[in-house]
Computed example of a mutant assay.
Amino acid sequence: MSHILDRPIWSALQTRHASLAQGDALALRYPPTVSLFAATGDDRAESLDALRALASPGETLLVVQSSEALVPAGMKAVSRASLVQMMAVEPLPEIADPRLELLGPGDAQAMLDLATLTKPGPFTLGAQSFGSFWGIRQGGRLVAMAGERLKQPGYTELSGVCTHPDVRGQGLGRLMSLYVAGKISARGDRVYLHSYSTNTAAITLYGSIGFKLRSDMHVTALALV
């Protein structure tokens, strides 16, 4: 039996992110200024054709789901990678720390710069369209952040967790994860996240704060031939 998070992009765009959705009943995507995430609700040929129709020349669409994505006719798989999807076993408590601040539109470039440097996953200047992000500054410079990404009824994804190399080893990644997860839990949502299967350090960190494996996942980058 399928789970709402087996195709998390599809379920988000069908529900809590419907205002961001571009496409039709067969395939949906986020605006390219927000994300290159796209999805279908199933693997029927007509759904895959609709997915291809959402792609622009020179653009790469990213599909995340529990099964390996099929490649639509007229497209190619540029890359594939394995992910794990982890979920907090219990609601996480809200924590307070005076160093953390809610980030706003004026922080978009600093957020993108930090994400580009640390590569937590796909990130754009429009990432705040997904949800709220929080960060820590040192000397006026953004050095750590985390926030919300995909949202479904009863679920919110913790994402964008990154720490500048200059401040690693201070526990800021753990702090950011706990802080944002606590905010999500306080709303009554279950917290989940994705990590590359090869990122054992991140998986160990998330396991230590109460996350367990829910499903193996796959991310596929698709482009027009």
Rank of each mutant, 00 (worst) to 15 (best):
K76I: 14
D97T: 08
K119R: 06
Q128A: 12
P93H: 06
V89M: 04
S129K: 01
P72G: 06
I95T: 09
L83M: 07
S82W: 09
A115M: 01
M86S: 08
F130V: 00
R80Q: 13
S79R: 11
L125Y: 03
A81E: 13
G74A: 09
S82A: 08
Q109E: 15
Q85V: 12
P93I: 03
F123Q: 02
R99L: 15
L92Q: 10
A88R: 07
D113C: 04
P91Q: 01
R80T: 15
G126Q: 03
F123N: 00
G104F: 14
L103W: 13
P91N: 04
A73I: 09
R80E: 14
P72T: 12
P105G: 15
L103F: 09
P93Y: 10
V89Y: 05
A96C: 08
M75P: 01
V84R: 11
M87H: 02
L117E: 02
G126P: 01
R99Q: 15
G121F: 04
F130C: 10
V78I: 15
P98G: 14
E90W: 07
A88W: 11
E90N: 05
V84W: 08
V71D: 12
M75L: 10
Q128Y: 11
P122E: 11
M111A: 10
D97S: 09
A96D: 13
G74K: 10
G121D: 00
P105I: 11
P91C: 05
I95F: 09
T118R: 07
S82H: 15
R99K: 14
P122I: 10
A77P: 11
V84F: 03
T124W: 01
A88P: 01
P93T: 01
F130N: 08
A81S: 15
L103P: 01
P98I: 09
T124Y: 11
P91V: 06
P105K: 14
S79C: 05
P91S: 02
I95M: 06
Q109V: 06
S129N: 06
G121W: 08
M75N: 06
A115K: 02
P105A: 13
R80C: 07
G121V: 05
A108P: 08
R99G: 14
M75V: 13
G126E: 05
L102F: 14
L114P: 00
L100R: 12
Q128D: 05
L117I: 04
A96I: 13
G106T: 13
L117N: 11
E90S: 09
K119D: 06
Q109S: 01
A77Y: 01
L112R: 03
V71H: 13
Q109T: 10
S129A: 13
S129C: 13
M86D: 11
E101I: 15
I95A: 11
A73N: 07
E101Y: 03
L92P: 01
S129G: 00
D97M: 15
E94D: 08
S82T: 15
A73V: 12
G104T: 11
L100I: 14
K76M: 01
